[in-house]
């Protein structure tokens, strides 16, 4: 008899974050992607990166402010101050430095984040501002011509930490189905998967036996520690991977989780045991994404 993948009766616990959408354009898609990859590099977790960032979508020429190929990025942080700092540093070091690039805001809100307004000083007095429609842009002279940068990015509310865990027999089968889920989630707008390739293997819990650490390995899900700790894994499980989802709204995260989990369920892979989720008992984050509710089970 074929074994069904179990969806555990649990929930993912997520937190409010600050988010901004940015659009990077360049002469070719390749160079837009280079700049974007550089921008979202080292932005997997706020635990040590200061922000979580990822590529939201590829934009066609007719979807960008300057009619060139572009990439839409979402960047999340815990506070307004951190978000502003991370955006400015990454824009200056990763986008302005990338050949032919230009940088624009991809959303609007009342809360402005200084972008071209600060980066313009790199122009050393030769920068020129231009107002097009209601927005101001800065033209900063650089060695390949000009770097065009919108004066402000904009901050809105977001949610970080939507997640689900894939428990299975071995790394080969778990990685295979998780990759399939990532492909489907990456097609969605308003969400990003900040970890490498969209997948995390080092799920964490809050705190540690070492005083200085704010997070440490989630030993309950480490298959190699089954005999040493009160493990949440049974005999069949030899590997666990996690997909972490940051999104603009609860609906976006729910939708992404639903599509990701359904993709895995649809594989009917016999080596996948169950789908679970990471939470902290419901005491830390105000957003609880109940797996069975999301899947209408």
């Amino acid at each position: 008899m074929k074994k069904e993948i179990i969806v555990e009766n649990t929930f993912a616990e997520a937190f409010p974050m600050k988010v901004s959408r940015l659009v990077i354009t360049a002469y070719t898609k390749k160079w837009a992607l280079e700049a974007a990859n550089s921008f979202v590099g080292f932005a997997t977790s706020v635990i040590a990166c200061g922000c979580e960032a990822g590529i939201e979508s590829y934009l066609e020429k007719n979807e960008t402010p300057d009619g060139r190929p572009g990439i839409s990025i979402l960047i999340f942080s815990m506070s307004e101050k951190d978000l502003a700092k991370q955006i400015l540093n990454r824009a200056g070091q990763c986008v302005m430095t990338s050949p032919t690039s230009a940088l624009f805001s991809g959303n609007l809100s009342d809360k402005k984040i200084s972008l071209g307004k600060s980066l313009r000083y790199f122009g050393d007095g030769f920068q020129i501002s231009k107002k097009v429609g209601d927005k101001r842009y800065w033209r900063i002279p650089v060695m390949d011509g000009e770097f065009i940068c919108e004066e402000f990015a904009y901050q809105t509310k977001g949610i970080g930490g939507g997640n689900f865990l894939i428990l299975g027999k071995d790394i080969e089968s778990v990685l295979d189905v998780t990759e399939k889920a990532v492909i489907q989630i990456n097609k969605l707008k308003n969400v990003i998967l900040p970890f490498p390739g969209g997948i995390v293997r080092s799920g964490s819990k809050v705190g540690s036996k070492y005083r200085n650490l704010i997070a440490s390995t989630n030993f309950e899900y480490c298959p190699g520690l089954k005999s040493l700790v009160k493990s949440k894994l049974n005999e069949e499980v030899g590997c666990v991977l996690e997909i972490v989802i940051d999104g603009i709204s609860e609906v976006d995260i729910k939708n992404a989780m639903k599509i990701g989990i359904k993709t895995i369920l649809d594989t009917n892979n016999e080596n996948i045991h169950s789908i679970s989720a990471g939470n902290y008992g419901g005491n830390l984050g105000p957003y609880h994404f109940k797996l069975r509710e999301i899947l209408d089970v």
Binding site: A102, R139, E146, I148
Partner: peptide, 17 residues
């Protein structure tokens, strides 16, 4: 001589608005 990217921005603005 420069690649005048600002003109692209202007062109998109004029076309869309």
């Amino acid at each position: 001589v420069i690649n005048f990217i600002f003109l692209d921005l202007l062109a998109t603005h004029m076309k869309s608005n």
